[in-house]
């Protein structure tokens, strides 16, 4: 496979974590945890499953440091209706918990989990509209 976008000395987190294969493995596990969590599953009521899975893919690609088209403003816009329904830090924490648990289940090394969690954490204020 030849993919030479920019010359980098280190493989990206996305590559080290296993690229789209890792995303594919993580999505089902993660989303099932989220939907089973009474603290947050009401935010997903009525959502189209296929579209949600696509969004989770995008979420994982981003959390793994893969390129993505999301801007802070997109994050704000996409979650604004949920903030109105009461989305707050406790819910964001719950999602972070499931992200961590999913990656542990997939035997991702701890230092990579820390990196992924830090990227996801960086979206907190945008998602919560702060």
């Amino acid at each position: 496979m030849s993919d030479s976008t920019t010359e980098t000395t280190h493989a990206t987190l996305y590559e080290r974590i296993g690229g789209e294969a890792a995303v594919n493995a993580a999505v089902d596990l993660f989303y099932r945890k989220v939907l089973n969590d009474y603290r947050i599953n009401r935010f997903f009521d009525g959502a189209d499953m296929e579209k949600q899975i696509d969004k989770q893919r995008a979420f994982f690609t981003m959390a793994f440091g893969g390129p993505n088209n999301y801007t802070g403003q997109d994050m704000r816009n996409a979650h604004a209706h949920l903030v109105k329904k009461g989305l707050d830090d406790s819910h964001f924490d719950a999602v972070m918990e499931h992200l961590g648990a999913t990656l542990v289940e997939l035997n991702v090394p701890a230092e990579l989990i820390t990196e992924a969690a830090a990227i996801a954490e960086s979206t907190r204020n945008d998602i919560l509209g702060k």
Binding site: Y14, G19, E20, R57, T61, P67, N68, N69
Partner: peptide, 9 residues
């Protein structure tokens, strides 16, 4: 297209 990485499909 969005991600160009095979993730978003």
């Amino acid at each position: 297209y969005v991600c160009k990485l095979g993730s978003c499909q």
